[in-house]
Amino acid sequence: MKLGNSSKLGLLLLMAPLLIWLFALILLPHVDMFFLSIREKVAPRVYQTSMANYMEFFNEPLYWNTFARTAVMSILTTAITLLIAFPISYYIAKMLKGRMKAFLFVLCLLPFWVSELVRTFGWMILLRETGIVSSTLQWMGVVDGPIEFLYTDATILVGLVYSSMLFMVVPLVSTLESLDDSYIEAGYDLGGNGFTVLREVVIPHAMPGIVSGCIVVFMLSLGNYLTPVLLGGKDSLWFTEQIYAQFITRFNWEQGAAFGFLLLILSSLIVWAGLKLSRQTLSETMG
């Protein structure tokens, strides 16, 4: 008994830093944020507890639409990233060996050696009306006048996909690397063609990587701020932008906190629905 107790204590001590960290940096601010979010400002300096800040989200189509748009764009980003990253990852994991492999991997990592801001400005320099792409096209005579590539949804997607790539490639490469070549060969040997082997053997095996990559990319895109705001310009309409605006430019922390919670809840719901649809479980993905 004594041993049991002391080992329990030891475990507790071992876990203490983690628990304190979790408590202080995750739980506490959230609790605080929650109380903030259920505070309704009825007049200057007068507050009351209510769900008005949450209702505001549902009653004002503008917020609701902004969220829906953000979610749809993030799902699109996730899908596009997956479509691009899968062949790349397959190539890195299965076709390449040694130095070439490391090289390509680093290539995927490269964008992350500069900050997100610099990266996004890079895109702006390339894509703006007087930017490199537009001038090159004019110089080549493909187009007559300058074209603005910025400030469209497509641009936002490009930027998001670009900055999400690594988070998809890494889990995919690691699951694909763990797929023994003999499974693929057996898939062919037993009569499968490229497509069926991909569908029956490679994808089922890579599923945990696909799911975790998708979750990460989706959450990152949903929570991204700089890329959609800078590349999307006047029509960016990103939900985090709303939260930021509520906190910083409107001093409406109550509304901002409510939006923050809604984002957390709704994005978790979407992830949950995604897992259900793909018949995956989170524990399988992480395990």
């Binding site: 003999s182 040997d189 499968g192």
Partner: peptide, 17 residues
């Protein structure tokens, strides 16, 4: 190609899916 040959292979580590 392997999927068109009338041969099949039992792999060293079996490769059961």
């Amino acid at each position: 190609p392997p999927n068109k040959r009338p041969v099949n292979m039992v792999f060293q580590h079996l490769a059961l899916f």
